[in-house]
Design a protein around this nucleic acid. Structure first.
Lengths: 147, 147
DNA sequence: TTTTCATGTAACAATAATAGTTACGAATCG
DNA sequence: CGATTCGTAACTATTATTGTTACATGAAAA
């Protein structure tokens, strides 16, 4: 099964935005992410609704941050994407009548819940400023930051 | 995005098998799981190759365990299903040229790896015998174990 | 040995989720 | 006004999974 890369993709986009003074257009970002401008708008719409970025139309328009990078956690972004599903694996039936199935769902579900909590805590503790700092250290060693 | 329920489904099937003396046919299991016999065979084939279950053809044939329930961990089953992907979310590109993307992939990837380790440890520490015991306790309170 | 039952597997159709594309309306700036 | 840029709907393309049909293979029973 293929993995959903929207979180990675949008972080990639945001980091490129963080490196610029001026707003970036959907076309600019689409180039970075090797995709389509409409796809970019679709994804960024969630972040705009969550107050993470703002968009402007017309000349000089495009996307820019609505608040400091240090005020934006990965969890904020994850939630803004509207995909609160972390795991591919999950229960077969939400409301099983079979006692066997109920039992299986509970055991698996508990394990997944714990792992998810770990992940969310990690996301909550990492801000875009952290990510940008991490990137700048890496960029210092290798200057080929196109793409 | 929809979740993959093959692990839950196959555990459900195995627990029903655990409750019986005789082998269960693919049709029997398909009824339990509300699916098709061919789908059952497809899924169980992985477990057979992994030495977890055995299949017999002809009269009195069907599926049965190849070893004690206490010797089969959830991790064994998870691996036998041949889907070592836990998370829906993942990197956009495996081999990114862009330094920004590399950095993003590493941060996200590390967090996912840690959460996955937690989950796998939990799976490794739970056997089918544990699951069966859990089920029998639940069944004692409510006797309606069809499905 | 013939019949019946059951798995093994290939091939194909059905379903569903995601991503990509086109088109056009609305807003903004010069 | 005209160029630019987002907003969004509608449609197509792609891909993954699941369900179905069909038939070959093997094993036990009659």
């Amino acid at each position: 099964m293929k993995r959903n890369s929207r979180l990675s993709a949008v972080l990639h986009a945001l980091m490129h935005m963080a490196e610029r003074e001026m707003p970036m257009t959907s076309d600019d970002l689409a180039l970075c992410l090797d995709t389509n401008a409409v796809v970019v708008r679709r994804t960024m719409a969630g972040l705009r609704d969550a107050g993470i970025v703002q968009s402007g139309r017309g000349h000089g328009g495009g996307w820019h941050f609505a608040k400091p990078l240090s005020d934006i956690s990965l969890l904020d972004i994850y939630n803004a994407l509207g995909e609160p599903i972390v795991f591919q694996i999950g229960p077969a039936t939400e409301m099983p009548g079979c006692v066997v199935e109920k039992s299986v769902n509970r055991v698996i579900g508990d394990a997944l819940k714990d792992a998810e909590a770990i992940l969310m805590a990690r996301f909550a503790g990492t801000t875009l400023a952290d990510l940008a700092a991490d990137f700048r250290v890496a960029a210092k060693h290798c200057r080929a930051d196109t793409g």
